[in-house]
């Protein structure tokens, strides 16, 4: 784990941080309110959460919503830029791959999960 959140006690911004919890592919992940999903994923030690067409792993590249490398599905909404979306307590994040078709769960229920 190399990327991480600056610990509160030595953060010169004097930040606080209300904890929140999301799930990533069903696994709980903890963060603080105000983090983007990308920030939360990086701070929880993940460096990648998406696969390019060849299956190669991808994570954050541009960090400001330009490169679309960090896309995730959030509460059933596909293709959300993780670097731009703030995490909300209870968010269900699904990671994806362009290499293997993502499973679909039935005709009328969207290309992600649940409506």
């Amino acid at each position: 784990m190399s990327s991480r959140l600056v610990p509160t006690e030595r953060d010169a911004t004097g930040r606080g941080g209300r904890p929140l919890r999301i799930t990533v592919d069903g696994v709980p992940a903890d963060g603080i309110a105000g983090q983007t999903l990308a920030g939360l994923l990086l701070a929880s030690g993940r460096s990648s959460w998406r696969q390019a067409p060849s299956g190669a792993p991808r994570g954050v590249f541009c960090g400001i919503g330009v490169c679309f490398d960090c896309l995730v599905t959030v509460n059933g909404e596909p293709d959300v830029r993780a670097c731009r979306r703030r995490a909300v307590d209870g968010d269900e994040v699904t990671t994806g791959s362009r290499a293997v078709p993502r499973p679909t769960d039935g005709p009328e229920s969207g290309t992600g999960e649940g409506q």
């Binding site: 596909p78 293709d79 005709p107 229920s109 969207g110 290309t111 992600g112």
Partner: peptide, 8 residues
Amino acid sequence: FPSLARVP
């Protein structure tokens, strides 16, 4: 294809 509504 109603299920495409969320597709960008």
